[in-house]
Design a protein around this nucleic acid. Sequence first.
DNA 1: CATGAATGAGCCTTCATTCAT
DNA 2: CATGAATGAAGGCTCATTCAT
Lengths: 205, 205, 205, 205
Amino acid sequence: MAMDREQRRAQILTVATAVFAEKGYHDARIDDIVVRAGIARGTFYLYFEDKRAIFEHIVDGFLQRLDDAIRVIELDDPKAKPSDQLRDDLLRVVALFAANAQLAQILLSAAVGLDADFDRKLLAFYDAVTALLMRALTEGEAAGLIRPGNRAVRAYCVTGMLKELLYQIVLRKTDASHDELVDTMLDLMAFGLFTEVGARALRDA
Amino acid sequence: MAMDREQRRAQILTVATAVFAEKGYHDARIDDIVVRAGIARGTFYLYFEDKRAIFEHIVDGFLQRLDDAIRVIELDDPKAKPSDQLRDDLLRVVALFAANAQLAQILLSAAVGLDADFDRKLLAFYDAVTALLMRALTEGEAAGLIRPGNRAVRAYCVTGMLKELLYQIVLRKTDASHDELVDTMLDLMAFGLFTEVGARALRDA
Amino acid sequence: MAMDREQRRAQILTVATAVFAEKGYHDARIDDIVVRAGIARGTFYLYFEDKRAIFEHIVDGFLQRLDDAIRVIELDDPKAKPSDQLRDDLLRVVALFAANAQLAQILLSAAVGLDADFDRKLLAFYDAVTALLMRALTEGEAAGLIRPGNRAVRAYCVTGMLKELLYQIVLRKTDASHDELVDTMLDLMAFGLFTEVGARALRDA
Amino acid sequence: MAMDREQRRAQILTVATAVFAEKGYHDARIDDIVVRAGIARGTFYLYFEDKRAIFEHIVDGFLQRLDDAIRVIELDDPKAKPSDQLRDDLLRVVALFAANAQLAQILLSAAVGLDADFDRKLLAFYDAVTALLMRALTEGEAAGLIRPGNRAVRAYCVTGMLKELLYQIVLRKTDASHDELVDTMLDLMAFGLFTEVGARALRDA
DNA sequence: CATGAATGAGCCTTCATTCAT
DNA sequence: CATGAATGAAGGCTCATTCAT
C-alpha cells in the first residue's frame, strides 16, 4: 500500500478537507479521515502532527491562495482601469470559493470561533484585506474618484458584502453567474441603490 | 439559596451566556457554568434538557430580540420617511448588539458551524432578513426610489455589510459612534462610493 | 455506590498500591486499578489527577512514614544509649517495610529509574539519610566511639547494607526475625567480620 | 554503508546502550536507537528479535563481564592473600562499573522493576554473588579468620554496601579514588566502625 | 427541588513491529 | 541485506449526563 509521500499527503489532505467541511472541526474524528482515506490510524500521524495541525494547514493553504487571488490595485496601470482590476480581484475570489466549496465552507464555518488562537489568525487576515481596501479608498479619494467618507467603516462594509456573497455561494447552490454577482456588488458599491428621486428624498431629510 | 424558579433559570442563562461567549460552545463545559452559578451539577439539568438545549435557548432568545428590533419598513407612513425607518432599524440592531456583546459574540462566533442543524436555523433567520430586504427593494423600485437591479444579491450585500459592522463592533472596541457607523453604511448603500467623475469613468468602461 | 470521599480515596490508593507493586508503574493500567476497585474509569479521575499523580502520592506517603521512622540519634540521651537508638531506628524501618511489602516493593522497584524527576526525588531522600548518618559518624568520632575514616563512603555503605536487607525482606519471604537481621547488621557495622587473627593477617598485608 | 554484520550489530548495541542508559527502558524508543545508529527501522529487526531482546542482551553481556570480574577467593593461594584477592575482586568490579557508566546505569536503574521475569534474572545473579560470599564466609570461619555469624545476612550486607557504592559512583561524579572507596569498605567490613571504647560500650548494653 | 458522586462512551495519540519493494 | 511506509493494538483522559440520597 506504499504510496509516494507527497501523493499520500495530498490524499489525506483532500479527505480531511471533505470531512472538516461536512462535520466541522469538533465533530470530525480522526477516524473519519482515516477510514475514508483507507489508511490505518497511525499512518495519519506520519503525515500530520495532530488533528489541529492538519486543520491549520488546510486553512493556511486556502488563506494563501486567497491572498494570491487578491492583487493590489494600481491606479495608473495603463493596461487596466482600477475598476477593472477590482472587478478581476472579486471575480478571482468568487471563482476560488466556488471552485473550492469545501475549503470555503471550512473557512467560513468550521474555522470560526474555534479558539482564541484561530480567531486571531482569521482576524489578522481580514485586517490585511481591510488595510488593502482602505489604501484603495485613500488613493481613490485623492484621485477624486471616491467621495470622501469614513474609510474604515466603508472597508468593513465592502468586506462584509463580499463575505456574505461568498457565504451564499458556498452554502446554497446560487445559480447566479459570478459575473452577475460581482457586477451587482460593484454597481451597488459604486453608485448605491437610489435613483435621483430617492437620493433627493434622502438628502432632504 | 432559596430562589424563585424563574430567577434561578434566568441566573443560569446569564452565566451560561458569559461562558459560551468566552469559550465558545465546545470549550465551554457544564462545569464552568455550574461553578460560576454556584449550583450543583445535577441542578443544571433540572432547568435545561442538556448543553445543546441551553445554547439553543440563548441563541433563540437573541434571535427573537433581534427580530423584534427589525421593523418592516412602511413606504407610506406619514410619520417617518422610509429612509428614516431603515435608519432606525439599523440603529436598533447596532444598539442591541453593542448592549449584548456576549450574545452577539455567541451569534457571530460560537453558533457558526456548530453543526448542520444549527446552520440551518441561522440560515433561516438570515433568509427572513433577506426576504424583508427584498420586499423593501421591490417596493422601492416600484416607487421609483430604487434603481432596478438583482434584488437577491443586493439583499445579501446589505446583510453582509451589517453583519461585518456588527462583527467589528463586537470583537474590537470600535470607538465610532453608532450614528457614524450607520450613516456611513446608509450613505454607501444609497449613493455608492463614487464621485461623478469616478462614476463616469466606470460607465465608460 | 456513593461512598464517603476519604473512604473511597483510601480504597483507590490501596488498590493502586497493590497494582503498582504487582506490575510496576508502566505495566499497571488505570483499568487494572479501576476494575479491582469496582469503580468506573472516570471515578478514578475524580480522586487523582492522573496515573503519575497517584503513584507519586503513594511513594511520597511511604517516604514520609519512612522519614518518621528514622529518629535522629542523640548522643547524650540518658534514657537510651546511642547504639540502642540506632537499633530502634533500624528495627522501625525494617518493621515498616515488612508490614508494607507492597509499598516497599514500589519504592525499591517500581519507583527506580522511572524518570529523571523521580530519580531526583529518591536521590534527595537517600541524601537526607546519608546526611543523618554522616552527622552521627562525626559525633561518634568526636566522642571517641567511632574510628576515624571516610564518612561519606561509610554512610553509603551503611545505607547500602540496610537497603539490601530490606530488598531481601520484601522480595523473598526471609524467615529470619527482624532482631536477627538488625543485630547481625549492627554487629558487622560495629565490629567487622574478622577475628583477631584475621585482622592481624589483613593488617600485615 | 557497507558494514560487516558483526560490526553493525555491535554498533547498534553501543547506540542502544547509550539510549537505554539515558532514557530508561520504557522511555527509550526504537526510533531513538535507529536514528542515532543511522539505520532504517526495519534494519534493527534484522539484528535483534525485539526491544526486549536487545535490552536483555545488553544486560546479560554486562552481567557476564561482571561475573568474569568476580573471581572465587582461594584461601590457600600462595601468591595472594585472601584479603588481597577480595580487594582485587572489588577493585575490578568498581573499575568495570566506572568504565561502563552507561551499562552500570542500566543495570542499577533501567533494569530494576522492569517486570517479574527480569527481576528474577537479577535476583538470580545477586543470589550467585551471595552464594559466593557465603562460601567465602564459611571458609573464613572454618579457618578462624571470620567471627561466626549469620552468613546469609552478612552476605547481603556486603552485597548491599558494594551496590550502593557502585550506585553512587555511577549517578554522581564521585571524585574519590577507587582505592579509597574499596579500602574504606574493606576496613568497615573487616574491623567495623567502633573503637575499643565504643565496642565495650556496645557490648555492655 | 438540590446535590454531587459516579458513570462510561468516546477520542486522540503513541510506538513496537511487519512487510512489500 | 536494507529500507521506511504502513499498521493497529493499546491506553490515558475528558466530560456530558444520570441517579440515589
